[in-house]
Computed example of a mutant assay.
Amino acid sequence: MELERAMTIFESPDTFKVNLAGQPVWIEEIDQANGMATVQVGSRPTNTMTVSVDRLQEEAK
């Protein structure tokens, strides 16, 4: 995913389906300077990872 798209999804009031390696994630924070995103994996708020934005994939609608 491109950084600009990740920012659009992060800032949107709408919900978008985003995956990391086939697992659903929720974008919690974007580090624009470094192209990184902190994501919540699955439904557990304590299960977070920081990954390169280009590893994220938006599901087709």
Rank of each mutant, 00 (worst) to 15 (best):
G42F: 10
S43N: 12
P13C: 06
N19I: 06
D54K: 13
Q23C: 07
A21F: 12
I27V: 02
Q57C: 08
K61I: 05
G42I: 01
P45L: 05
V41E: 00
S43D: 11
S12I: 04
M49C: 04
V53I: 13
Q57M: 13
I30Q: 05
R55D: 05
W26F: 11
R5L: 11
E2Y: 06
A6G: 05
V41A: 02
E4G: 07
F16G: 02
S52T: 06
G22A: 12
V41Y: 00
T48C: 13
Q40E: 08
N34G: 06
S52P: 09
E11R: 09
E58L: 12
K17A: 14
L3P: 02
P24S: 05
L56Y: 00
N19L: 15
W26M: 08
S43A: 12
T38K: 15
A37N: 06
D31V: 05
Q40P: 05
T8G: 03
G42T: 02
V25G: 03
M49R: 14
S43I: 06
G42S: 09
I9F: 12
Q23W: 09
E59P: 04
V53A: 15
N34Y: 13
D54E: 10
R5Y: 03
D31W: 12
M49L: 15
S52R: 13
Q32V: 14
A33Y: 08
E59M: 13
N19C: 08
R44Y: 08
E29S: 11
S12W: 10
Q32H: 07
L20D: 01
I27S: 00
Q40S: 08
M1C: 07
T8K: 10
G42H: 05
R44C: 08
E4T: 14
K61Y: 11
E4L: 12
S12K: 07
E11P: 02
A33I: 04
I30P: 04
V51W: 09
A6T: 03
E59A: 15
D31L: 10
A33F: 08
Q32D: 11
E59Q: 15
V51H: 05
R55E: 14
Q40H: 10
E59C: 14
K61T: 05
T8P: 01
D31T: 09
V53G: 04
V25F: 11
L3C: 06
V25T: 02
P13W: 03
L56K: 02
W26C: 08
V53W: 06
V41F: 03
T8Y: 11
P13F: 02
V39A: 01
P24F: 02
